[in-house]
Amino acid sequence: MEVHVKLPSGPLIEYLVFCRVLAQAACPTEKRHFTGIECIVGKVVYSQVPMPRTPDGERCVASAELQSVLLSNDGRTLDQLQQGEVSQSQVVELPLSYALDAADRAALVKILPLLPSLRYPVSQADEVAFLEAYAALKDRPAWKPILITDSWMFDRKNEYMTVLQGHQKALAEEFRQGRLRAVDARGVPVDALR
Rank of each mutant, 00 (worst) to 15 (best):
M1K: 10
V3P: 08
L7Y: 11
P8M: 03
P11R: 15
P11H: 15
I13Q: 12
E14Q: 15
L16A: 03
L16Q: 06
R20I: 02
V21Y: 07
A23R: 01
A23S: 01
Q24W: 07
A25H: 06
C27G: 06
C27E: 13
P28I: 10
E30G: 03
K31R: 15
I37E: 14
C39F: 02
V41L: 03
V41G: 02
G42Y: 02
V44Y: 08
V45L: 11
V45N: 01
Q48V: 06
V49P: 00
P50N: 03
P50D: 03
M51P: 05
M51H: 09
P52G: 12
R53W: 08
P55G: 04
P55M: 02
P55L: 02
P55T: 04
D56F: 13
G57I: 12
E58W: 07
E58M: 03
R59V: 13
R59H: 14
C60R: 15
V61E: 15
V61Q: 14
S63H: 09
S63C: 11
E65N: 11
Q67T: 14
S68A: 12
V69F: 03
L71C: 06
D74P: 03
G75P: 10
G75S: 09
L78Y: 14
D79G: 07
D79R: 04
L81E: 01
L81M: 06
Q83G: 10
Q83D: 11
V86I: 14
S89L: 14
S89M: 06
V91K: 00
L96W: 07
S97P: 08
Y98R: 09
Y98G: 04
A99E: 15
L100M: 08
D101M: 07
D101Y: 13
A102P: 09
A103T: 14
R105F: 01
A106I: 07
L108N: 04
I111N: 09
L112Q: 06
L115F: 12
L118Y: 00
R119I: 11
P121M: 07
P121A: 10
S123W: 04
S123I: 05
D126Y: 00
E127Y: 08
E127V: 10
F130Q: 05
K138A: 12
A142L: 07
K144C: 00
P145H: 05
I146L: 11
L147E: 00
D150A: 02
W152L: 01
M153Q: 06
M153E: 08
R156I: 04
R156S: 15
K157D: 00
T162E: 12
T162W: 09
V163R: 00
Q165V: 03
Q165D: 13
H167D: 10
Q168T: 07
Q168E: 13
K169I: 08
K169H: 13
L171S: 04
A172W: 02
A172S: 15
E173A: 09
E173P: 01
E174M: 02
R176N: 09
Q177C: 10
L180W: 05
L180A: 02
L180M: 14
R181I: 14
R181F: 13
V183E: 13
D184R: 08
R186A: 12
D191R: 07
R194A: 06
R194I: 10
